[in-house]
Design a protein around this nucleic acid. Sequence first.
DNA 1: CGTCAGTTAATTCCCACATCCCTCT
DNA 2: ATAGAGGGATGTGGGAATTAACTGA
Length: 377
Amino acid sequence: MGFDIASVKAGWSMGLAAKTCDSCKSAAAAIFCRTDSAFMCLNCDSRIHSGGGNNKLVSSRHERVWMCEVCEQAPAAVTCKADAAALCVTCDADIHSANPLARRHERVPVEPFFDSADNIVKSSPFSFLVPSTTDQTGTCQQEDVEPGSWLLPSNPNMNSKLGMEASNHVKTGDLFFSEMDPFMDFDYQNSFQQPHHNNAAMDSVVPVQTKPTPIPVINNNNENCFDIDFCRSKLPTFSYQTQSISHSVSSSSLEVGVVPDGNSLSDISYPFGRTMTDPNAPISATTTANNQAPQAGGIDREARVLRYREKRKNRKFEKTIRYASRKAYAESRPRIKGRFAKRTELDNEVDHLFNLPTSAAAAAYMSDAQYGVVPSF
DNA sequence: CGTCAGTTAATTCCCACATCCCTCT
DNA sequence: ATAGAGGGATGTGGGAATTAACTGA
């Protein structure tokens, strides 16, 4: 099926304009420099952080992160592996508090980079996807690229899976879906294990997070989002209070299919010191002038979240097998025109006679295949 | 340029049942 | 507080049906 990029672009162009570069004030910001607490477009980032002499030496230590893929108004704080998207704290909270499945999404803190964002983009094998934001004169250009388009991105975090992460990991030899993020100084993978759900843990191919764990959230009523001070220049100062970034699936947050609306958003306390419904509320002492992303009203946020969901819907994901045992059983089941058919006594006998897969055989197969085995009784 | 038919590709739906997981005792 | 039973919900794959996009006349 062909992909109507034009229509996608048109659809996403309705959203909120991307944050503009603090330097040139014209182009859309692509990165956020934690050290400078400044939003920058690729060109300005390249110019400022790749300058010569001492400036280069100093600037090369500047820790930078991509912008949030959804709102493009705030620095990305976490990378959702399931959605393959880099999200800011606010969008992370909005999207991943929607339902229990979303809460299961595995998220890791974004990995800052120190090289020029432009270089990273260019060195990425997917750099051809990234349109130039600089005209031939080398000056910044007001992008006419629609914000939020992950196919034709206005910023290089356009596709965190392909762009940001791939480029970030090109140098480290890592892959986006590597089990361990070398950037993290704790084993988040292990933290996802379920000490008391051995069967499920063993059976699941993808991490299933059902074990409530302490929530690494400060000043945030939403249990499932991170609270990170973007302006901190040193990574180890990330304010994770626990050794796990697992998010809670506590019973108190199990309302199914509840998408936060504008009103509910007002209850969310943002680390930026403002509430959604009161953008003029005083900024907390720790808030910098650059952390004003969530100023947008609830309607804007709703639009951005809708845009994100639309974007996510258009993505192609490989099918994820959550339960290998069910897969094995499904494959061994009799079918009629592709549909599962009732297994009769005769079928069972035939299966036995011809040594065809049975429940026990399927379990044995999974055992051989290094899958987790759910004991069948 | 617009319309239509034919072709191709992608998506959705359906089925049975082992397993999951929550509630109740 | 813990264990066990009960039962509704979930997830699984292959093929048919449906839908969407594309192509050429």
